[in-house]
Amino acid sequence: MQSEPNELERRLEEAERENAALRAENAALLDSQLASWTTIVRDESSALTQVYSTLSWRITKPLRDARAFQLAVRRVGLSSALAIAVARVRRRRG
């Protein structure tokens, strides 16, 4: 008569262990999913940052600025484009 409760207790413990293991496995999967996403986001973000910090990107900046200025002149005219450029420089310098 006493062996039946013992058996039930043992099966309950086993189920709880199994449940905990599944929870841990699930948590690990969710962590792994988030880690993959973070890695992709971080790497792509760093790739952009690295491009921006390369020598070639920095030395070609005047060319890009000149092109942006040329487009601005086309859009809003020379005087406004100059005014915008001056305002930008001032804002950068505070």
Partner: peptide, 19 residues
């Protein structure tokens, strides 16, 4: 839901200056 939301926000995050 989590995967779909992360996928939706990936572009916003990768251009974030605050990671």
């Amino acid at each position: 839901a989590t995967l779909l939301l992360l996928s939706e926000l990936a572009d916003l995050a990768r251009h974030s200056e605050n990671l």
